[in-house]
Each structure stands twice: as structure tokens, then as C-alpha cells.
Design a protein around this nucleic acid. Sequence first.
DNA 1: GCAAAATGTCAAG
DNA 2: TTGACCTTTTGCA
Length: 264
Amino acid sequence: MPEGHTLHRLAREQTARFAGAPVAVTSPQGRFAEQAALVDGRVLDVVTAHGKHLFAAFSDRVVHVHLGLFGKYAAGTGEPPAPRGALRMRWVADDAWTDLRGPTACEVLAPSEVEVIIARLGPDPLARRPDGGAAYARIARSRAPIAALLMDQAVVSGIGNVYRAELLFRHQVPPLLPGRDLGGSRWTAMWADLVTLMRAGLRTGRIVTTRPEDRDRISGRVRQLDAHYVYRRTGLPCRVCRTPIAMQLLVARKLYWCPQCQAG
DNA sequence: GCAAAATGTCAAG
DNA sequence: TTGACCTTTTGCA
């Protein structure tokens, strides 16, 4: 489930489990083997996330990972299981292991190369001091639909298809509205809301965007089906106005919205 | 046993 | 704008 909150959680977990001690880094699949040797056995300093990118610092070499659509980590304590399938990268420490499969990017970089990647990313709502100003500067001068701009990692980093659709619904924004027509006060409210939503996602590991009054509750726990307003709810009645939720492709990604609540 | 789908990005044309 | 790519899981025959 790789939207930004997932990566920040992984950074935190991996730091807690591995930082401060040597890590055996291997590539059972072989595709990362040569580069793995560059950091194998080194002490891990810290793992950080920026948007959907993960950076593991081993002194002056940094393992950069981007999960893409399919990438996944598995982790555990004690002895690692026998490698199976396409296992790109494995870390093993005294009492912890983690396996990476299917990432879009898994490479060893110099710190200067990391700077280049971060420099082309927009502000991250999960940064310690989030600031959406730079994002709005780009939005305000773009004719592109706001739904496309929100997914552009150079505008905001960390938003994926779920947060995109849900944020637009919560602010009753028509997805095809050109960025330049959004307005600064609307953006300010959206950014603040996004920070709140993603911090909750970071805490819980789940994306829950529905307000309590718009969903049913079962013993306090939010049912998966109740967690979203529009994402993957094509044809189902809107939780607010009962109009069927609509879906269309935009820049090759599925975009969900309520034609009534987000009319315009 | 195979096709389709999944919360993403990049480069070619 | 389109297609390529990364891998696993799910659903249908």
C-alpha cells in the first residue's frame, strides 16, 4: 500500500530494528547483488523517507528504494525464512530481517545523488514542519486538472490515488478544475487537511478518510468498506448525497469522484 | 493454468 | 499520449 504514510512507517520501523549495528545486505535474486556488496556488513545510520522515496544511510553510501506500484517489504525477527521467489534485497541483523520484492528502484547512491532526487520533489505533508506554499505556487500557475497536479510528485510528494480522490471529495473540489482556478484559501484548507489525514495514516498504517458521522461503526473499529468516500466505490451511492460514484481514467490512473458533491 | 488488477514512474514518440 | 516495467494476489475457467 505504498502511499507516503507507508514509506514513513517503513523508515521508522527499519531505523528501530536495524540502525546502529552492522547489516548483512544481499540480493538472493541477483539483480541488486553488485550494489548490495557496496554496503554489505556496514553499520546502518538511519532510514528516512521523503514522499514515496526511502533512503537508508550506510555512512557515505545510501540505499535508495522506491516501491512503485508493486513493491513490498516483509519483515520479522529471529532467523530469516529461506529465500523464495524474486527477492531483490534482504537485510539481516542479529535479531531482525527484512525482504524487499518488486520495487521500481533499488540502488546505491552517493549523498549528492540523493540531494538531486529530493530537490525535484514537492513538499511532503509528513515533513516535520509541513509547508504547502511551494506546491500552491505551482498549482496556481497551471492549467492542468487539480486531480493530475495532486498526483504529480514534483508538486506534492507522498500523495497517491487514494489520498488524491479522498482529499478532493472532502473539499468538494471538481477533479478536472484547472489548478489556477482553485484559489489560495481552498488550497490552505486542503493542505492542512492532508497533513492531518496523512499523519493519522502514519500512526495507524491505514488510510481512513471518512468522518465518523458518515460511516457505520462496529465496536469502534472502522470497517474497510467504510474507510473511504469515493476510492474504489464506482456505482455505489455517495455517503453524503446518495448519487452513484463516478470513475474515469485520468493520466492512466483511475479517478473516483461524486458528480453531485463535486459538481462544477 | 492463465489473465487481470493493484495505492507508480519514466521514457519514447 | 502510450507503453514498458517491477511482482504478487485474486478470480475465473
